[in-house]
Every structure is written in C-alpha cells, then in structure tokens.
C-alpha cells in the first residue's frame, strides 16, 4: 500500500473522518426520494433529489455561469470589504481618539439589515456587478474592522517590554508583534465574512439583477421552477462551504502555531 493510501485509511485519516457524513448523505437522499414516491408529494412543495440533479445536469452551462457570477461577486466583495475593514481596524487600534469617535457609528452601521441598505447601494453603484460587490463589501467590512482592532490590541504587555529592551522600532513592533498576535482574530473575522459575502451577493441579486444565483432563485420562484430553485440554493451553499474550507486552509498555513490549527492536526 502506498504512503498516501495508508494515511487516508489510518484512524483520523481522511476516510475515517469522511465516511459518516457520506453515509448520512446517501441515507438522506434515499429517504427523501422514497418519501416523495410514497406520499406523492407535489414537486413545488419538495422536488426529489433526482429532479434537482436533472435541473443541474440538463443544460448546465447557464446555471454554472450564474454560479460563477455570484462566486465572483462574493470573492471580490470579500476581498475589498476585508481589506478596508483591516485598514480601519488598524487605525482604530492605533488611535484611541478616532476609535472613540467613530466606533459607536461603526457598531450602529453594523446592525443595519443588509436588505435595507442594498437598494441604496445599488442606486449609488448602478445595475451592474459593481453594486453587488459593493453590498458584499459592506457586509464584510465590519467583522474584520472590529476583529482587527481587537486583535491588534491583544498583544502581551511583557512581549512589548521584550521589544522595548531589544530597541525595536515602530514598524518592527507592528509586523513582528502586533500583527502576528492579531492573526487568530483576523481569521475569526474572515470566517464570518465568508458567510456574509455569499449572503450579501445573493441578497443584492434579489433586489436587482439579471444574472447570478439570486437572480435564478427569484425567476425560478416566479415560475415555480422548484427543482431549478433548489439547484441554485444548493450551489450557493456549496460556494459558501468551498470558500470556508479555503479560508480554514489559509489559517492552517498562516497560523500553524495557534491552538485552533494544532488541535485538529
């Protein structure tokens, strides 16, 4: 047996971890298919797994095209919003007076429901993809701003003394002490943003769009094309899961020293 196969098969290897959810998935699909056949549930209430599969596989081009648009909006908004949030969080961490002045408004803005703010942003940024990215960026902004600030303030005071004794300069303190100690917090913010960015893209598409999974969901809803609606819904979930897995992988690469990355090694 090759090394890789052995790794996959050993306790806590991939196979060991993956088989229960896979088995559960197969069981649910069979039960689902069976219930629909037995109780003759109409397709607009609950489409069968087979009909959803058909909705995905017959003429898959357009559906995957829409999924690609939503993925693009989510990722672009995630990156822009997270970057801007990181910058503001850093400003807050370094300037008490700016933080005291603006933090209450940032927290207040964070509580505005995205559905209320999306139409305004779409008026500002137009009917293209740009406005969907802006809505997504708006949602991704706050979690990172707050976590970045908290993270940069979380450094150990004795480590600060160590840097003082070693006559470190300002940039060295930032890049070698405060930023590394902030990384676990940054990843908390990024993981929140993953979920928010998919929500933001789809909500913005609900408000106004002619492409994307949110658009597919709205049009399928109007025509009661339920298998297609379910297909779009499942694809948006898959986008979120894949995106989350990517961030979790980056966390392991960039924060290998932290407990959350070590305990599930």
């Amino acid at each position: 047996m090759s090394d890789t196969v052995q790794k996959l098969l050993r306790p806590n290897g991939f196979v060991d971890l993956a088989w229960p959810p896979v088995a559960a998935f197969i069981a649910i699909v069979i039960l689902w298919e069976g219930l629909i056949a037995v109780f003759e549930i109409p397709v607009y209430i609950l489409p069968s797994p087979a009909s959803i599969w058909l909705a995905i596989t017959t003429n898959p081009g357009p559906l995957f095209g829409h999924a690609g648009i939503t993925l693009y909006e989510a990722v672009a908004g995630f990156i822009i919003g997270s970057l801007m949030g990181a910058v503001l969080g850093t400003v807050f961490a370094y300037s008490k007076i700016i933080a005291r002045g603006l933090l209450p408004y940032v927290i207040a803005a964070n509580t505005i429901p995205v559905v209320a703010v999306a139409p305004i942003i779409i008026i500002w940024f137009g009917h293209g993809i740009g406005s969907k990215i802006a809505v997504t960026a708006f949602l991704s902004f706050f979690p990172l701003a707050l976590n970045m600030m908290k993270g940069l303030q979380s450094y150990d005071r004795t480590i600060m003394d160590v840097f003082h004794i070693a006559a470190a300069n300002g940039p060295q303190r930032f890049f070698k002490m405060r930023l590394p100690s902030a990384l676990p917090y940054v990843f908390v913010g990024l993981k929140l943003n993953v979920t928010f960015s998919v929500i933001g893209a789809i909500v913005a598409e609900f408000v106004q769009a002619d492409k994307g999974l949110g658009f597919v969901i709205m049009t399928s809803y109007r025509t009661l094309a339920m298998p297609r609606l379910w297909a779009a819904m499942l694809m948006s979930a898959l986008i979120g899961i894949a995106f989350f897995a990517l961030i979790a992988l980056l966390e392991r690469i960039f924060v290998p020293w932290h407990a959350s990355a070590q305990d599930n090694r």
Partner: peptide, 16 residues
C-alpha cells in the same frame, strides 16, 4: 543592546 531582560513570564512569541 547591552541589556538582557528575563521576566517571570517567558514572553515567548507563540508564532515563532
């Protein structure tokens, strides 16, 4: 850099 200081807490950088 003529002073070395050791604290009660080792204050090691967990990320190094």
């Amino acid at each position: 850099r003529e002073i070395g200081f050791v604290f009660q807490d080792s204050a090691l950088l967990e990320w190094r």
